Computed example of a mutant assay.
Amino acid sequence: MMSNRRRFLRRVAAGGLTVGTLGTVGLQGVEYVTGGPRESQTTPARALVAGSLLVLADDVAGADVEAHGSLTARNLVVDGARDPDVLALADPDLFSGITAETTLFATNALVLAYDPESRYADAIADDWATGLAREGVRVGQTDPKADPLGYRTVLAMRLADDRGLAAAELLDDSLVFPETALMRTLEAGKIDAAFVYENMAVEHDLPFVDLPPAIDFSDPARVDTYATVSLDLPDRTVRGAPIRYGVTALTDAGAAWADSLATDRDRLRDHGFTVPDDYPLVQSIE
């Protein structure tokens, strides 16, 4: 069943929203650097964030924001290619080796967004699995080697397989895009549907289908179920787990921005994130 969500209203600073595009050798896709709304003339912090946080992060004053898939962002820091003041990622495990703790500030759900103008829109909305299985449907996803959205998509289809639904094969002919480009590609009608986070669909005002809680990584009570699937990546093995976002100030200059990102619960919910009652919550990183 399709979820009806409130229309997301973008707030644009008086001076306008500026988005620049950089090409970087050795990185997959395109990265975005945004200035965000300005409240003072002080030097902004340098924020490196998950691609799914880009729209939200630009709505938080006080930082220049660069976005990539979380795994790519982590590797940029570890390899010394970036030295941000604050780091916000879509999987707290990726902070390992960077910081001893992170602040959990939001959760999310994996959903299937679709183009309402697609010839397959009704079929996808009625039954997402059979809709995606129809000949000619173009499905988008992100790269499991670049971001948690990519590996969670693969893991979700494996969970669905375990429940008797032949879902993994739905990704056999999928088209892979950078996390920062996936929604623009869907909005442009170049694909019919894409596995995304709920906040991404809300922010872009696109219809989406809720996946079953047993496979969407939204329910902390299902942690044992999620953990039954895993995926081997070049430098790690990832296991299914509830989706959680973490933020850490790596310098004093990033502290205020990190605090603003993590503590404005209304803003997080307006952007389509879920905020548990006990968040923000500091978590130790092994």
Rank of each mutant, 00 (worst) to 15 (best):
L94F: 05
G140Y: 12
G69W: 09
A181F: 09
T185M: 07
E179P: 02
T130M: 07
A125T: 03
T102K: 10
L132Q: 06
D143F: 10
T102G: 12
A125I: 06
D127V: 06
A106R: 05
D126I: 04
E179W: 02
R134Y: 11
V86S: 08
L170W: 10
V60S: 00
Q41D: 15
R134C: 11
A81M: 14
S118Y: 05
A67M: 01
G80D: 01
F177D: 09
E66H: 06
V55L: 05
D143Q: 10
A133G: 14
D58R: 04
G150L: 09
P84V: 09
D93V: 14
P116C: 08
A57S: 02
A47F: 04
E135G: 00
R152T: 12
L132P: 05
S70G: 06
L89S: 04
V86E: 08
D85G: 04
T72F: 05
A73Y: 06
T43I: 07
S118Q: 03
G164H: 04
W128F: 13
S118N: 04
D172R: 10
P144Q: 07
T103R: 12
T99Y: 09
E135F: 00
L94W: 07
V111D: 06
H68Q: 14
V78I: 12
V65G: 00
R163M: 14
D59P: 00
G51L: 01
Y151M: 02
N75I: 02
T42H: 12
F177Q: 11
L89D: 07
T130W: 06
T142A: 07
P144Y: 06
N108G: 05
A125C: 08
L170A: 08
E135K: 01
T99S: 15
D162T: 08
R119K: 14
A160Q: 03
T130D: 14
T42L: 15
A67Y: 02
T72M: 08
T103V: 14
A156Q: 13
T99P: 10
E135Q: 02
E135Y: 00
F177R: 12
G140D: 14
L76E: 11
A109W: 08
G150Y: 08
D115M: 03
E66R: 11
T142S: 14
D147Q: 10
L165C: 06
G164V: 04
Y120D: 02
T107E: 15
L56D: 00
V139W: 04
D93W: 10
V77Y: 02
L110C: 08
L56S: 00
A168H: 04
R46G: 09
T130S: 15
E169K: 14
A45H: 03
